[in-house]
Design a protein around this nucleic acid. Structure first.
Lengths: 171, 171
DNA sequence: GGGTCTTGGTTCAAGTTTGAAACAAACCTA
DNA sequence: TAGGTTTGTTTCAAACTTGAACCAAGACCC
């Protein structure tokens, strides 16, 4: 099967997407590092916990919600626990389990940083999009996410034959 | 000024966006690590070089195109140079300058990996979007990127007063 | 009950990113 | 043309991520 290269429109969209997501992640990380002393992902951990029943969640569930690996979560939670933002608790029903529970201090940090974070997201994203575009963004993101979650088996190079060609590898 | 929290629509869009971008970056990194032995960013460096006149570019220009810091680029280029994918050359006109030049080997790797990469991007992104959505994605991304580039000064916490509130910190 | 398979979580080493500091060359400007 | 600033790049230490390996504890099976 010969490669279906990207059309010019697709290339433009792809590049714009890559650029904007790099810039955005960067800006948000910087803002939160400043105002909350932690990167975006860590803030998200606290945020997800704060919305969970009893402000606590099992590690695996947390990782699943955040779409990150368990090992990455372990590291982050260790740091956050060290900083007093959350506590690890044992799971009654399953002795293997570990539960992350938001502390008062964690909640306080969240409360203090939330307005600035929302303001940042708003000013860089939603203030620049029409209502329609917000809806479009959700649909597009959902469509992409769906494909990425439906099964863990990803195509390996064996499934993808290739042929010579000189440039525009689409970055 | 009281915080303008996200509307439910905005929240849904934001979460979908965050989730999809994490998953996508992840999938692409994994695929390229498998097939080209390097993460997406590194592949992009080679890709950008391959499209540049003489297949070479100054560090700063490269960093600018890729929207990454110079220090991050330095590290990546050092690794890629070690692997023989590119060469550093001195800049004739400006002795401070350093130029990254794609090697034959680098080009070969790019050529070999490109079809698989494009196939991955296509299958996870463009195969799931309508033509309209592709156009929408470009517009949305461009709008976001524009705001993030127009000046380096980002709002600090001082610009953003806050008030108490109990949850949904929008992650 | 004693294998064996799976699941939940952590650990470890290697690789990457960050941000501030260091340097050196180029560019003023008096 | 000396002194001061800006620009281009690297360096360094600390923080973070990755993936494979590991260790229990549950689940299944005979």
């Amino acid at each position: 099967m010969t490669t279906r290269w990207l059309t010019p429109e697709e290339q433009r969209a792809w590049r714009a997407y890559i650029a904007s997501s790099l810039l955005l992640e960067d800006a948000i990380d910087r803002q939160l590092q400043q105002d909350a002393g932690m990167p975006h992902l860590y803030y998200s951990i606290l945020s997800v916990l704060s919305e969970s029943p009893e402000q606590r969640l099992r590690m695996t569930d947390l990782a699943e919600r955040l779409k990150i690996t368990r090992s990455r979560l372990t590291y982050a939670v260790t740091r956050l626990e060290k900083d007093g933002m959350l506590r690890r608790e044992a799971c009654r029903h399953d002795k293997r389990g570990s539960i992350a529970a938001l502390t008062e201090a964690g909640f306080a940090v969240l409360e203090r940083a939330a307005p600035g974070h929302v303001e940042t997201v708003r000013s860089f994203v939603f203030d620049r999009l029409s209502e329609e575009q917000v809806a479009q963004l959700e649909e597009i993101s959902a469509a992409i996410a769906q494909g990425l979650q439906e099964d863990g088996t990803r195509p390996t190079s064996d499934d993808v034959p290739w042929r010579r060609r000189s440039s525009t590898a689409c970055s």
